[in-house]
Design a protein around this nucleic acid. Structure first.
Lengths: 110, 110
DNA sequence: GAGTTATATCGTAATATTGCAATATAAAGA
DNA sequence: TCTTTATATTGCAATATTACGATATAACTC
């Protein structure tokens, strides 16, 4: 097989999984951290920063964009990529909710 | 090729990516949510809950465990899986840090 | 328009993931 | 010990991901 059975899970579970999957690669984590720390969001600067070829970086950017984690603005010949704050908030709230939920249930088993 | 170039990224970036990757599948998100919501952490109950065959669920549990997100306790013939609170806290703090960082940098570009 | 610069897409090889049937293992009970 | 029950492992087919050279596209500059 090799096909994920997305249809058996809730829309929310699939949505979270898609975002997590996009973040499940060190290059894409590095891109997110670069966009967060740096003043620049120019694609060329990301390519220069990462130890990967330009087509590879372009592909990683595309995946982050498809997952809704970043957005891209064309500026002349350059493209400016930025973190989508809404997406990040979804993730932040998801994990905050999980953590506080765990707190309540402590020592229930194991 | 097809091999992730982990050696070019920081240990922290790789560690975060490993955990995110493990959560990058709806079945594994469903498992985490089940372990969070339910009183049970018995493997058999997870298998019963998920729309996947037992070997498939076993494999997903293994991946979550390898990523450090859950821990397993043998209890007779059953195995009790629980969320590793430390791992979840790492993720929660990671996203909280990102969110607050973004807040500061709002409207810098794009 | 020709050349330059920045980014995306195509094509492809190497490798990884997903899912499950079949089977193995390991503990509990008869 | 034999059987049952619960979980893990193996093996394999289908598919997805990763990386990059080659090439395409698209917007500036002259």
């Amino acid at each position: 097989m090799g096909v994920t059975k997305t249809e058996h899970f809730t829309e929310n579970q699939n949505q979270i999984a898609i975002m997590m999957k996009a973040l499940g690669h060190p290059a894409r984590i590095a891109i997110m951290e670069f966009l967060m720390k740096s003043d620049s969001c120019i694609c060329g600067d990301i390519v220069a920063e990462l130890p990967l070829a330009q087509p590879t970086v372009s592909q990683h950017l595309k995946e982050l964009k498809n997952a809704g984690l970043i957005k891209g603005n064309v500026e002349g010949t350059a493209v400016c990529y930025c973190i989508d704050e809404n997406a990040l908030e979804v993730l932040q709230l998801y994990f905050a909710g999980m953590s506080s939920n765990l707190e309540k249930q402590r020592n229930k088993c194991c």
